[in-house]
Nucleic acid binder design. Structure first.
Lengths: 243, 243
DNA sequence: CCAAAAGTGTTGCATATACACCCATGG
DNA sequence: CCATGGGTGTATATGCAACACTTTTGG
């Protein structure tokens, strides 16, 4: 970027507000859920919206996103959670009050503790992915973009473990894929694919799960160090025909 | 995002400047080139930088990026060119003068007309990808991110045609892959892969290329309607071992 | 006639898919 | 002892990498 002398005047342009918006996803009882907050004021009073807030003067967008994530979920420690920049939304009229440029993030959580209603007093809640529409502002678009991105990244990254608790069974991991993609996968083949990818998961030293399930106790795994998936784990039911 | 009443004061926070930065890539005589501008003033006077500029009050970042692309390349029509949002860079001190949040874009061009030195008077030029370092500000990081993204997207999208003129041969398309990835590909197999993907390329009605080449004239193709590549065209020389 | 680039064919290995089957636990 | 979910084996199909070969042009 190149600047002229006039650019040094910070108020040469109408100021832009910079915010972060968070698409926080989790899996709850076999269905994809989103963290939403209910708006108390106009515009969009009574509508659900993505959590978010202003970027502070000395923060990066990433720092602001993690701060908001902690505030909105009420979790004590959000350092381990998956948080990734999605894209930036900057249409001039996306907020009727003023010029707001929003950097959107996607966050993925394992379990789903009931959210701490944010400092903004609005109600916060986990909603099934399809519910609460239409969302405020352009949040329907942001959320759809987030879902599409997660869909795609499950194929060629190890992202699925971000939905799982620290220790999990392969059955749980498979359910992540089946829930997000909305398809069924062949268990034996899924198992082989996952185990054949070095660093995707690693067995926890001495354990097997007992008390919960009805069938044979499943082995427990932890997320491995790998991030990419080569070759990818392709989701079925696309006829190899790109749009 | 939720607002309190105080948020209505546009000057409640120190204003953020919002800019766009462009990583404009092309292939020139078999090598990847980047469009860079030379800075005339401090900071980073004399350094090369990515082209870019401020987002105007009534523009989206996308609109601003396309406007800057037209200005900096001097091309009359930039509507057909590939332009895609990369990510947003918002570290508080990335510009020593003031708080600048920059939405970065990646643009891909077929041919490489000599750039019109921008309105900012600075010199503009195509440089081989490796040259001109270190760039001003955090532009080394932005450019590296852009390259990485293009690398990855060649595998599973039809993006490579964005580097090609309206009509091209399969040899030229293959050179795009080889140049960007820095590897050699097997011509027969590459050919089959591309032609087996419906909508990737389509033959131009009656043509074959004659005058230029030394060997057998190659058939001409146009970019097809497809955007995704299933299955992907994997780049070789990665041992299937994710990090 | 030779070099260079386009295009075709073939073969072997790797992987995926689809399914049949056994194992261990709770009720 | 049966339903339920975990885990193993295997045959067939598919896809891809490697490489030999033919074709058509310019010099």
């Amino acid at each position: 970027m190149t600047f002229n002398k006039a650019d040094y005047d910070k108020y040469a342009y109408e100021p832009f507000a910079v915010t972060v918006d968070l698409a926080v996803l989790t899996i709850r009882s076999g269905a994809l859920h989103v963290l939403l907050v209910e708006r108390g004021q106009e515009p969009y009073a009574g509508h659900w919206a993505l959590p978010g807030g202003f970027v502070e003067p000395r923060e990066s967008a990433e720092t602001a996103a993690r701060r908001e994530l902690a505030e909105e979920t009420g979790l004590a420690d959000v350092t381990g959670l998956h948080l990734e920049q999605l894209r930036t939304y900057s249409e001039p009229d996306r907020d009727p009050r003023m010029r707001v440029v929003s950097v959107a993030f996607t966050a993925l959580l394992p379990d789903a503790p009931e959210p701490h209603a944010g400092s903004d007093a609005a109600r916060a809640s986990w909603l099934p992915y399809e519910e609460g529409r239409p969302l405020a502002f352009d949040h329907d678009v942001i959320l759809a973009d987030a879902h599409e991105r997660v869909d795609a990244k499950l194929e060629y990254t190890c992202l699925a473990t971000a939905f799982c608790p620290p220790e999990f069974t392969l059955g749980e991991l498979q359910q992540v894929y089946e829930t997000v993609w909305g398809t069924d996968l062949d268990r034996p083949n899924f198992r082989r694919k996952v185990l054949a990818t070095p660093g995707f998961v690693e067995p926890v030293p001495g354990g097997a799960r007992l008390t919960g399930g009805r069938g044979k106790p499943a082995a427990l795994y932890r997320a491995g160090p790998a991030t990419a998936l080569h070759p990818p784990l392709l989701r079925p039911s696309r006829e190899g025909r790109p749009a």
